[in-house]
Design a protein around this nucleic acid. Structure first.
Length: 268
DNA sequence: CTGGATTCCTGCTTGC
DNA sequence: TGCAAGCAGGAATCCA
């Protein structure tokens, strides 16, 4: 489940390829292309000028009007290989060839992800929420968007229109760190709790980026290798485990259709 | 408008 | 041991 830290890791891994020229794009499965604003030949022979991330999206830009936007869904991978090396795994949907004798592989087993070839990124990301690691995401902002909302705080954190980039792993981890129950009504969070939660979100995301993301099962970085943050998880996916803080057996509960783990003793 | 349910998809895990 | 059912989830869409 590539969330913000995982996509950020891939972005950093691929940054050395800035300036490479796209020589060919091989689309093996056309339904993976969710939107196409320009013909492929427009971007062939163009340099990759910018590799960036917005929420859980990764973007390769050749110019302000030529952008390849990727979303990895929950099982997607995007990594670089030498042209002479063969990617043997199944479910490879797109291959972008570079003039540096390398190729970028877009692979997605469950096909929840997609690729958009778009002209206007500002329009495309218009409805996406704030970047949680930016100065826009403050305790005050979190306090404001929670007021009057009866939705579970965890469901609110997963709403990409409010905050962009948090998925199931980091929602559970941040709520544990902030000692807030995931099923607590968002509007009932105190100002103090929104401060703690805001800081916990930033902290957890930053720490995961340092460890190059979480490889729970599917995630691979830009070199098709695993991350390390799974070793630092406190509650995510830990069915029947004890709270690392107080030893209470963790509670497993479906919230907003998402399996959640939390400590009913530490998180109020 | 709000929030919950449903849908897409494959493969690992579980249980009989 | 074998096989079928259960489960996982990002985000759009539907519905009450």
């Amino acid at each position: 489940m590539p969330e913000l830290p995982e996509v950020e890791t891939i972005k950093r891994n691929l940054t050395p390829n800035l300036g490479a020229k796209i020589t060919k794009i091989d689309i093996k499965r056309s339904d993976i292309i969710k939107r196409q604003d320009f013909q492929l030949n427009k971007i062939i022979n163009q340099d990759i000028d910018k590799i960036w991330r917005r929420g859980k999206y990764l973007i390769l830009s050749s110019s302000p009007k030529l952008n390849i936007v990727l979303h990895l869904g929950m099982s997607g991978r995007f990594y670089i290989l030498d042209v002479k090396d063969e990617a043997k795994e199944p479910h490879i949907h797109v291959i972008i060839y570079l003039d540096s004798q390398k190729k970028l592989i877009y692979q997605d087993t469950r096909r929840f992800g997609g690729v958009w070839l778009i002209k206007d990124t500002a329009l495309f990301f218009e409805k996406l929420g704030v970047e949680p690691l930016s100065s826009e995401f403050t305790p005050g902002y979190l306090y404001e968007i929670t007021r009057g909302r009866r939705i579970a705080i965890k469901s609110l954190l997963l709403n990409q229109h409010l905050i962009a980039g948090i998925g199931n792993i980091y929602a559970d981890e941040a709520l544990f760190k902030a000692k807030v129950r995931p099923d607590k009504s968002a509007g009932l969070l105190t100002q103090e709790e929104t401060v703690k939660l805001c800081l916990a979100i930033k902290d957890v995301l930053k720490n995961s980026i340092k460890e190059r993301g979480t490889t729970f099962r599917d995630f691979r970085d830009g070199y098709n290798g695993p991350g390390n943050f799974q070793n630092s998880l406190q509650v995510y996916g830990k069915t029947n485990a004890k709270c690392p803080s107080c030893e209470t057996v963790l509670t497993k509960k479906v919230i907003g259709g998402r399996t959640s783990h939390f400590c009913s003793n530490c998180q109020l």
